[in-house]
C-alpha cells in the first residue's frame, strides 16, 4: 500500500520481502522475493557475504525492472527447508502479542532510555 502511494506521487520504490503471497496480493510496483523465513528479507544473520549479495541483487533488479506489479525471485537458498513446515502449520498457537497501547520494549532498560530522552513519559 505504501509503495503504491509513493509511486503514484513520483518516488520509484522496490519492495524486498519474504512472503510471496502477500507481495502478490499487494501488487507493489516492483517486488523482489527472497524465499527465506520471515524476518530475513535482507539475508542470513551474521552472514555479511549473503546479506550484501541479497541487497546487490535487489538493487540491480530495482534499476532493471520495467513490468509494474512483477515479482522477481532471487535465486538464493536458505539451505534446509525445515522452517517451512512450522511456518505453514495451522496448528500452532497464537503467535501474536496482546493488543494494547502500551509500548512493548525489547528490554526493560529501553524504557528507561526512552524516559530519559523524553520520548516516553515516566
Amino acid at each position: 500500500m505504501v509503495a503504491r502511494y509513493l509511486e503514484e506521487r513520483g518516488i520509484p520504490t522496490l519492495c524486498l520481502g519474504s512472503a510471496h503471497d502477500i507481495l502478490l496480493a499487494g501488487q507493489a510496483p516492483r517486488s523482489v522475493f527472497l524465499d527465506y523465513p520471515l524476518g530475513h528479507s535482507c539475508g542470513k544473520p551474521f552472514n555479511e557475504v549473503n546479506q550484501y549479495d541479497v541487497l546487490t541483487k535487489a538493487l540491480e533488479i530495482f534499476e532493471a525492472a520495467d513490468k509494474p506489479g512483477h515479482i522477481e525471485v532471487l535465486e538464493l537458498d536458505w539451505g534446509s527447508e525445515d522452517w517451512k513446515i512450522q511456518a505453514s502449520s495451522t496448528a500452532a498457537s497464537d503467535t501474536r502479542q496482546p493488543r494494547d497501547t502500551s509500548p512493548q520494549f525489547q528490554y526493560p532498560e529501553d524504557r528507561d532510555a526512552a524516559i530519559e530522552s523524553g520520548a516516553v513519559k515516566a
Binding site: 518516488i11 522496490l14 524486498l16 520481502g17 535487489a58 538493487l59
Partner: peptide, 14 residues
C-alpha cells in the same frame, strides 16, 4: 522522503 529529497525508496516489509 520528500524532505530528504530521496530519488528512490527501498521498502522492506515484514
Amino acid at each position: 522522503f520528500l524532505s530528504q529529497e530521496v530519488d528512490v525508496a527501498l521498502l522492506v516489509p515484514m
